[in-house]
């Protein structure tokens, strides 16, 4: 039995997420990852924006900050720069991170500030009742794309890599054990780490699009994803329509806090002369 209780604010349960919502699965993976990292609870800060996934911090016994829509990463930037010892983890949704929060997402990736960003990608705006999001697949229905979504979707992981994030992994709620490994890797990595998790939203994504319940969605993830190692030597036809999962990018680059500390040291040194 995993000691989730060690990290939960139990008096806040049962949580608000809908039946079969993947947020609970991702939250469990996050706690397993934090447990494995052995980082003391006092040094962990969980920052979120607005949306279903952004209610996560309220349930967790850490320094928790529930900010404004799309701005979690910008708040986290100030928090981290002001207290470097904090292990800052941002939990955000596809809309929160790449619609209203897109500007902060790409710039924090560019700066390579040390934080782990977990994006619960459920393809929809859940909290506000099922509107289309930047990741809603073309053709899919939502309350604001009742005739089918005509906009192409973002590839969040691709966006993160292009913006300069040194560690980017994507997986799904079906691959829950793999998920906690990626989150842990992101936490232990010094730099801007992104873990995109495809998360089932039975209520506002699956139902209007007749994709079944949570079990069927997890099933869908299983049958429609392909590990990147396998994908590398699979023909395009074979992997057409499949979502590539795994560690999509893992490199190293000077981290912003370090770079700024070196700058301060250099400036103070020069000041002495």
């Amino acid at each position: 039995m995993f000691p989730y209780d060690k990290y939960l604010r139990r008096d806040k349960f049962p949580h608000i997420w809908c039946t079969g919502c993947g947020c609970g699965i991702v939250l469990k993976a996050l706690l397993r990852a934090i447990e494995r990292s052995k980082i003391p609870k006092d040094d962990v800060a969980i920052v979120s924006g607005i949306g279903c996934s952004s209610r996560t911090p309220g349930y967790l016994d850490f320094n928790t900050l529930h900010t404004t829509h799309g701005r979690a990463i910008a708040f986290a930037t100030g928090l981290k720069l002001a207290k470097r010892k904090l292990k800052v983890i941002v939990v955000t949704g596809d809309g929160d991170a790449t619609a209203i929060g897109g500007n902060h997402f790409i710039h924090a990736a560019r700066r390579n500030l040390d934080m782990t960003v977990i994006i619960y990608n459920n393809y929809i705006y859940g909290m506000t009742g099922g509107q289309v999001s930047p990741t809603t697949p073309a053709g899919k229905r939502s309350t604001t794309s009742p005739h089918g979504n005509v906009e192409p979707a973002f590839d969040i992981s691709g966006l993160a890599i292009a913006a300069g994030a040194p560690f980017v992994a994507r997986t799904t709620c079906y691959h829950a054990v793999q998920l906690d490994k990626y989150i842990n890797k992101g936490i232990m990595k010094k730099g801007f780490s992104v873990v995109e998790v495809l998360t089932p939203c039975p209520t506002y994504y699956a139902r209007p699009n007749r994709l079944g319940n949570a079990v069927e969605m997890l099933e869908w993830y299983k049958n429609n994803s392909i590990q990147i190692e396998v994908a590398r030597n699979t023909s395009d036809e074979e992997k057409a329509g499949k979502i590539t999962i795994g560690i999509l990018h893992d490199s190293d680059r000077p981290e912003f806090c370090d770079v700024y500390s070196q700058l301060s040291a250099r400036v103070r040194e020069a000041n002495k002369e």
Partner: peptide, 14 residues
């Protein structure tokens, strides 16, 4: 927007 967010984050860190 980010500037205002960041200074709140920093102030929360004391």
């Amino acid at each position: 927007i980010a500037s205002m967010a960041a200074i709140i984050g920093a102030s929360l860190a004391g």
